[in-house]
Design a protein around this nucleic acid. Sequence first.
DNA 1: TACACTGTTTATAACGATTATAATGTAAGA
DNA 2: TCTTACATTATAATCGTTATAAACAGTGTA
Lengths: 147, 147
Amino acid sequence: MSEVQLKDALDALKSTGVRITPQRHAILEYMIHSTNHPTADDIYRALEKTFPNMSVATVYNNLRVFRKAGLVKELTYGDSSSRFDFVTNDHYHIICNDCGKIVDFHYPGLDEVEHLASHVTGFEVDYHRLEIYGTCQDCVGKTAKAQ
Amino acid sequence: MSEVQLKDALDALKSTGVRITPQRHAILEYMIHSTNHPTADDIYRALEKTFPNMSVATVYNNLRVFRKAGLVKELTYGDSSSRFDFVTNDHYHIICNDCGKIVDFHYPGLDEVEHLASHVTGFEVDYHRLEIYGTCQDCVGKTAKAQ
DNA sequence: TACACTGTTTATAACGATTATAATGTAAGA
DNA sequence: TCTTACATTATAATCGTTATAAACAGTGTA
């Protein structure tokens, strides 16, 4: 099924006049197959075997291209570097404050909140972002001292 | 009423053994009275008239102290620098994608989502974060071209 | 009052993620 | 083939944040 996603993404790019380069292909493929939510550097290091000459700037440039095309979402948490998430269906993230692990979960929708916010503030709402923070099972197990 | 908030904050700090310096007093005071959500640099520049010798590091250090004491929340959006928000009551933020303005709004609660997330993922939930993005009234008025 | 102790601020350097720049490469169209 | 426009590379620059070391208070004790 991820092949379909990749094909759809490539088609979407092509239809907006963006050239499909080997690097772009590889970055998209990596993002679709990766279960975690990689940073730009993760992607760079993962692909430097197949593209020994690829520059970090290429990763950033293309992530921006993908973001503008709506294929990829940029997530900024507390930690210094952004994480990137291939847009599939709507889902939310729950993040472990100990080890940083990010797990997806699905929840019907928060349209109601968007409506209320729009009504109260007069904004035109585009989208929202929700994250839940806590401690994952692995870390709950091995934690006795607080940082 | 914000004097009460300031006093409460100072008491909270003192009770945890943190010394109240003039700089800390001023940073807290500025954060309580500011309606927007300042960056560290905003605070630094706002106070450099009264504290010409103050260092940026002092601002960062103390924001961290306040954050650890639970007085201040750090918000990371897409733009490069963190914003800091004095913790009053629970509220959420709606952010303008054009001008960056941040407006508070209140919403009963999202406990339900937390419970579901906890159930599905096995995490112990601490808190969550919700932001809504859109366009504020001012920017809706003067917008015809998309970026 | 003098003295040591501890936490605070300052000044500055270092770090690291991201972006800008210029040069080179590469695909597509006339 | 020539030209044009977009992509990539390599590298430097930018900028927010953090680390470090030295100077500076406050506080408690003799």
